[in-house]
Design a protein around this nucleic acid. Structure first.
Lengths: 339, 339
DNA sequence: CTGAAAGCGCTAACAG
DNA sequence: CTGTTAGCGCTTTCAG
């Protein structure tokens, strides 16, 4: 592939002049400019961005690690980030951690050796303090945490108001006349999972309903967990009349369980879930959901990150925490019973 | 961030020695090795991959452009590619073309300036010959086309047997007693869409059924198209008794239309579709689908590409075309009528 | 406005 | 084994 040197030779100018022209930092006389243009097209010249990155110590690449791009919530997030990044001339290097910290650590190391200008991170759940993230930031790479915020770490973040989102949803269930409302939570190691549980508790408390620990099942945000937990809960004689599920995948599991047990929704069990599923409204009955602005989380995260990079100061002096709000979409799965 | 030079100084050895140690190409005496190790950890040294890339003219990065990562089919494909790439020490730069050739062209240019070692491409539909892809290959960047193969271009590819997949599915519909079977195709600019239509025709022909042009609707693989086409088709007095939809998104649109029109599946219309939806089996009734090995397409594609890169020869001498097979998952949406 | 030249951090001869 | 050194392709002073 042609180099700037070959172009300069062919155009009869110095490499400096070609570079000046390319970067547009200095103007070049019309005559030379045309010769450069001609040489470039004759040689089919494509600037070597690797060399430029080395020289400038700027790669114009962002790293992004999410749990699993196969989960619609994250794929929309990635798409949002990518759209913004591209607009602002950044490229995105994506990784799937499957929520394993070890993988996350490995990826972050790779991203450092690759000298990405910043990273968007959906942090994996873990008992221990995320030193690896702290180090990355300390080493001068701006980080924006998405969806989840590690506690005790000063870092920019874009999240969703989980407490409010689930509280509203559970209140809706109560409004529909339910008194025995179960919740399927995510792994309580995760802040988001804890917050959704908290919203559930707040709603019950606000309406003077007792919290029955039997109705609280901890899952892991996977279909299988929802399936298993639902089978257990629904087999009870004092089974709940409504269920709030902390994410979409687990709700799918619940639907499976219901269909296996021959239970009708909402007649036998009203169902509502966090996360919108692509098919929420074609399900029979359509599913009531707490819709998260996944795409927007990605956009805002990327914008925030790029602003940080542009500002140049990795100063942890000020931390920006964006909290977006969810939207409760009421559908048939929670329609009043007996109607 | 520390450089190899600083490490060498601190360890009291030459940069060459550090490099030899790092690359493992030459052995280093135990004493020096330990000093290097110590210096590296004291300085928290991370090799600069950008510099290495420049020196070796190898970035160990792959470009991947798909239509839209938000579509489960593609997100699984990307995941498969990423898993293989990572295993073999490559990183993936992903892009969404939204099936616009102009965007695709732009991305491929970016990928060239970034000097990726190869690209995985789901080519956008277009009337004209994809010169941009041809040029990319000619310039020495190996390309593997996924899911769709541009005609007349000698390029490696990993695809699916669309003809067979849809033929089997339509045959199943016929076996269930249907005679008026509609098809919703994708954009016929796309080979995959044409092939699925072809499978449909083959099935009808094989069973001596006439092809009624009225029952063939061309869509664009989006929910809205499925919705609109279905509304038109189902409003007819001589409406079909079964429908084969060429992709999952459009099937969702059909389901919406059916629910709006108060039609029951499979009583009023048997429905089958290409692509498995995450919720295919929790739908009521569960949806009969032609399952594509999306994840596997990504894996095979990445493996093929990396093998090409490793072999070093961009020789177009031999072209590898992998064709994977689909799996027909028969579910309730096509259950025999009147049962 | 233009050109010469010094590096960015690393690898790979090459000579010891 | 080890050290020296010449670049990879580009940007950017710094003189002209």
């Amino acid at each position: 592939m042609a180099t700037i040197k070959e172009v300069s030779k062919r155009a009869g100018v110095s490499v400096g002049t070609v570079s000046h022209f390319l970067t547009g930092r200095f103007s070049v006389s019309p005559g030379r400019r045309n010769r450069i243009l001609a040489a470039m097209s004759e040689l089919n010249y494509q600037p070597n961005h690797v060399a430029r990155s080395l020289k400038l110590s700027r790669t114009h690449m962002l790293g992004m690690v999410v749990s699993d791009i196969t989960n619609p919530f994250f794929s929309h997030m990635v798409r949002g980030a990518e759209d913004i990044a591209l607009n602002r001339n950044y490229l995105l290097l994506t990784f799937n951690s499957d929520d394993h910290v070890e993988r996350e650590i490995q990826f972050l190391t790779v991203l450092r050796t690759r000298r990405v200008d910043g990273v968007l991170l959906v942090i994996a759940p873990s008992q221990v303090f995320p030193h690896h993230v702290e180090e990355l930031i300390a080493s001068g790479t701006p980080v924006v945490c998405l969806d989840r915020v590690p506690q005790g770490l000063r870092v920019d973040s874009v999240t969703v108001d989980n407490i409010r989102g689930s509280r509203e949803c559970v209140e809706h269930l109560i409004d529909e006349g339910h008194r025995r409302i179960a919740i399927l939570t995510g792994p309580l190691l995760l802040q988001t999972a804890r917050e959704r549980l908290q919203g559930y508790k707040q709603a019950l408390k606000a309406r003077n309903l007792a919290i029955d620990p039997v109705l609280v099942g901890e899952g892991n945000f996977r279909v299988e967990a929802g399936h298993k937990l639902a089978r257990n809960l629904l087999a009870r004689v004092d089974r709940p009349t409504a269920m709030f599920v902390s994410n979409g995948l687990m709700a799918v599991g619940v639907l499976k369980a219901m269909s296996e047990l021959g239970l009708e929704c909402p007649r036998d069990l009203a169902l509502a879930s966090f996360d919108d599923l692509a098919l929420s409204d074609v399900l029979r009955p359509p599913l009531t959901t707490v819709v998260q602005p996944a795409y927007e989380i990605g956009r805002r995260g990327a914008a925030l990150l790029i602003d940080r990079i542009a500002s140049g100061s990795t100063k942890t002096s000020s931390v920006t925490k964006v909290k977006l709000t969810t939207e409760l979409k009421i559908r048939g799965s929670t329609a009043t019973r007996g109607s």
